[in-house]
Write a protein that binds this DNA or RNA. Structure first.
Length: 483
RNA sequence: GACCCCUUGGUCAAGCGGUUAAGACACCGCCCUUUCACGGCGGUAACAGGAGUUCGAGUCUCCUAGGGGUCACCA
């Protein structure tokens, strides 16, 4: 037992952002690599932002990519409950301790009053900081206001002077003046703790040894440490992680396009590829490896390989990685993923083995399939006969006409219409005529597809279309060349 | 604006005082070839700028610039 415990603590706000997934992944990898535990905690203290079904999305996504948690709302554990809204008593208990020791105080300032003061500051171009107005309230006054039912919050009482230093395993030692810190709200008027407070309490109570979270918390970490100290708790190790960017100046966000894990899956990305790609966005194994299974990631993971600067999401590279994963798929797995798209394209009845053979090397994202194979279902019969002319294959209108005319009856009388038979027939004809294979296959492919570029060659397309449709298209091509 | 952090090719990145400054994606060229793709080979392209420290700096220090983050009864 190494005692290492990490956690992933998402808010149930709707979908799984790719950046959050990466945070979960790193926390998971760090725990697994070091023989520690990975905890899942739901941070639902903001009831206004809560979205129904969001917790299920978190569970489903994590499970889909293999990020199983050792403790969590559904699996339990020794430090539950693992849902913050169910831990209110714990927060009140420790908030009370803070009040008693003077590290926190009741505040009755209303939102309106605060907004007014904030606006005033903005007008003077000054940074707003709560002025500890309510810290001066006497016990008497506090009791009276509470008795009168006046709503209140609990604020952290930050020392007015001095400095606070903390160590981050990635960023090193960071020191800030306490004077720059604000007396943040710890417990809201509705009795719910804020992130600032719930996090400290939960991370301590759940014995989290390494707090891994987004860099946006870097500047508020000193405040958390002040809380740990006030509560007499050991400060955990911190690992703040830089964000994933859309470009140099914008974070990857909903507005910039697809950012949720499910968006990528819906587009035809493989979950393994997405996970592999984001693992590499902000972390490097230190060597040249790029394809990793989850097990391999666990083995290779080391926070020393983590980057301190934000990484820009590169859709092209994800595309490439996804294509690499697709190419490595066994035929049956490829077909299982592709089948819905075959149906969508109306070619579900065609030979899946041939389809897999020609598509697997070409598809980068499954959603490209319908567009790639549409011509099999329905070709554009008004294609330009100029397509028959190709210098490299040494074809032109005349040679194409000759080839189609000769090949048509041969194919018509073929005993079988499978790839082997078709190949013997077509290549045999080329050999007999002393022609390049391409000189024969080019016009045939153009005639049966009507397209300059096709996935697969003439033989595969013929086999896929079957004798009747193939011959129909070949006759059409011949007619076009005869005109 | 104040405070904190970051800065190697277009992108992800290796490097951790001495290297011809890796590799991958993307891009370009060639080869293979039944078009495209795959695959193979090759190429273009980087240490933000300026001062130091040092025999020697992408690597250490400082400054400048640029970028990010925080400054909520959101997390």
């Amino acid at each position: 037992m190494s005692g290492i415990r990490t956690r992933f603590a998402p808010s149930p706000t709707g979908y799984m952002h790719i950046g959050n997934l990466r945070s979960a992944l790193y926390a998971f990898l760090f725990a697994r690599k070091n023989g520690g535990k990975f905890v899942l905690r739901i941070e639902d203290t903001d009831r206004d932002r809560e979205v129904a079904g969001a917790v299920a999305i978190i569970y489903d996504t994590l499970r889909a990519v293999g990020l199983y948690w050792d403790e969590g709302p559904d699996v339990g554990g020794a430090f539950g409950p693992y849902v913050q809204s169910e831990r209110k008593a714990l927060y009140s208990l420790h908030a009370g301790r803070l009040i008693k020791s003077g590290h926190a105080y009741f505040c009755f300032c209303t939102k309106e009053e605060l907004d007014a003061r904030r606006d005033a500051c903005a007008a003077r171009n000054e940074a707003f900081k709560y002025d500890k107005h309510c810290l001066r309230l006497s016990r008497h006054e506090i009791d009276a206001r509470m008795a009168a039912g006046q709503p209140f919050v609990i604020r952290q009482n930050i020392p007015a002077s001095g400095q606070t230093t903390f160590r981050d395993l990635l960023f090193g030692s960071i020191t800030v003046d306490n004077a720059t810190l604000d007396d943040n709200v710890l417990v809201k008027a509705d009795g719910m703790p804020t992130y600032n407070f719930a996090n400290v309490v939960d991370d301590h109570l759940m014995q989290i040894s390494h707090v891994m979270r987004g860099m946006e918390y870097l500047s508020s970490t000193p405040k958390y440490n002040l809380l740990y100290e006030a509560l007499g708790w050991e400060i955990p190790r911190y690992i703040h992680m830089p964000p994933i960017m859309k470009d140099t100046t914008h974070k990857l966000s909903k507005r910039t396009g697809d950012v949720s894990f499910q968006d990528f899956i819906a587009q035809g990305y493989l979950k393994e590829a997405v996970l592999n790609y984001i693992a590499l966005l902000g972390w490097s194994p230190g060597d040249d490896r790029e394809k990793f299974t989850l097990e391999e990631l666990i083995e290779a993971f080391d926070i020393k390989g983590m980057s301190k600067s934000p990484a820009i999401f590169d859709g092209a590279k994800l595309h490439w990685l996804n294509a690499a994963y697709i190419r490595a798929l066994p035929e049956n797995a490829f077909t299982a993923y592709a089948r819905p798209y075959y149906q969508q394209a109306g070619i579900a009845a065609m030979d899946e083995t041939i389809l897999a053979a020609i598509l697997r090397q070409r598809v980068e994202v499954f959603s490209q399939i319908p567009g790639m194979v549409a011509f099999l279902r329905q070709m554009d019969e008004n294609y330009d006969s100029a397509l028959f002319t190709n210098k490299k294959s040494k074809t032109d209108i005349t040679t194409s006409h000759t080839v189609l005319e000769a090949v048509l009856p041969a194919l018509e009388s073929l005993p079988k219409f499978d790839r082997q038979t078709l190949q013997d027939c077509l290549l045999g004809y080329a050999e007999k005529m002393g022609m390049k294979n391409g000189a024969v296959l080019w016009p045939v492919r153009i005639a049966v597809s009507g397209r300059m570029v096709t996935p697969g060659g003439a033989i595969e397309i013929l086999a896929l279309l079957g004798r009747e449709e193939s011959l129909r298209r070949l006759r059409l091509g011949l007619a076009k060349l005869t005109v």
